[in-house]
Computed example of a mutant assay.
Amino acid sequence: MTERLYNQDVYTKTFTGTVRSCTEVPGQEGYEVILDRTAFFPEGGGQYGDIGTLGGVRVRDTKERDGEVLHYTEGPLQEGDTVEGEIDWKVRFSRMQQHTAEHILSGLVHGRFGYQNVGFHLGDDICTMDFNGPITREEMEEIEQEANRAVYEDLPVHILYPPEEELQKMEYRSKIENDGQVRIVWVPGYDRCACCATHVGSTGEIGQIKVIAMMNYKGGVRVTMVSGDRALLDHEKRERDMKEISAMLSAKEDELPEAVRRLMEENEDRKCQIIELQKRMNELKVQQIPEDSRYQCLFETNLNQNGMRDLMNKVLERGVPICGVFLKRGEQYQYVIGSRDRDIRELGKKLNVRFHGRGGGKPAMIQGSLTGEEKTIKAYFEEIINVQ
């Protein structure tokens, strides 16, 4: 089996190892390399495998299979050669920060509520945790503050390999049943958890822990978190966004909530005004329609969905048997078609077939979208009506 240097010293960035095997991976334009010793961490514990180089050849992923560490390289290596390996330390260290921060947050949630972290994903931009119980935003803010106190205390992060007898007496979190030697990650006062992945040596190296999102998920809550450099980048982006919004609204940053509320109220007033104007416009349009019309096929450009339905209903109220309103949206037309005394579903089906559309509804009204030219749609609409 490969000697795993990351278990001896997680800060090993470069090393030398002998190539035991190198096999081309069919269909992947790459190779699977096994060494006698490696500092590359394979995917596990919710954390991606390391990337870096072996003998100058890029390693794009690392996994584990049947106890072996598999390096997936972009080029071949010679079996028996001794090569120098180098971890992409920026990527690895960021993952170590996120993973240690996850332990602290999960430990605090477990200690306070008894919930388990039942789903953990450590991506290269964010980290998500799924807890199997509800947590309010106010409660999570308190947990976040307590987690950052662990960072400020700069506590040592211990890696333990307790013997079976000691393990039986130890309280620790674990997502799976473990066979053989169990590796425990212990942050004193905050968490003790079985985990195979890499972590920082002390909590101060995390830098900061920031929860950036929460959502209800499968009866519990999904928490999105960033830490370290990722937290700094998140702060910088939010600051840039705030300054840009501040300039657009001509308001100081601490006045933005009130400025946005005013804008929303103004928009709501404008929406009401637009609805009233559309109704008045529709009334004027309907007055121009002959009362003895057999049908109306109207093409509009300045209506919303409610305006389309309002215009259709007003035409039907005037006594026109069938009315279709079509609204241009990019390359397509949205439509609403209605009748007070006929089932117009078959008409809609024919339109959809002819113009690659989709939609449907009830006998008295259908709606959907289709693709075509106004002249062609109008002619086919008239043809269907005349056949019926």
Results as ranks from 00 to 15, higher is better:
R95D: 12
T2K: 09
K243G: 02
L263T: 06
G30E: 05
W186M: 09
Y48A: 15
K362Y: 13
L303F: 13
P42I: 03
L327R: 07
D36N: 11
R95G: 15
G330L: 07
K362L: 07
A247Q: 13
G330A: 06
K210V: 04
G45S: 00
V226S: 01
I384F: 01
I159P: 05
A251P: 07
V91E: 14
G45I: 00
Q8C: 03
H121L: 10
Y11Q: 05
R240I: 00
E291S: 12
R342Q: 15
T301C: 09
F113C: 13
V387G: 12
K378C: 15
M96N: 05
R222Y: 09
N148L: 10
F15P: 08
W186Q: 12
E166M: 06
K63A: 13
Q334Y: 13
I143D: 09
R309F: 11
I126N: 15
Q116D: 12
E171T: 02
M214A: 11
G207I: 12
I159R: 10
E32G: 00
I344D: 08
R262H: 15
L351D: 02
R270C: 00
H121A: 10
I274H: 04
G357T: 00
M312S: 07
V10G: 04
T371V: 09
Q145L: 11
F299C: 10
A213K: 15
Y172E: 04
K13I: 15
P163G: 13
H99C: 00
I126G: 08
L155E: 04
E3K: 13
V260M: 10
Y190D: 05
M225A: 00
T100S: 14
V19F: 08
E255P: 13
M242T: 12
I385R: 07
D36A: 02
G75S: 04
P188A: 02
R230P: 11
L167S: 02
N306S: 14
Q305D: 15
N304A: 00
R65I: 05
E43M: 08
Q181S: 03
G368K: 06
I212Q: 06
E3Q: 13
R309I: 05
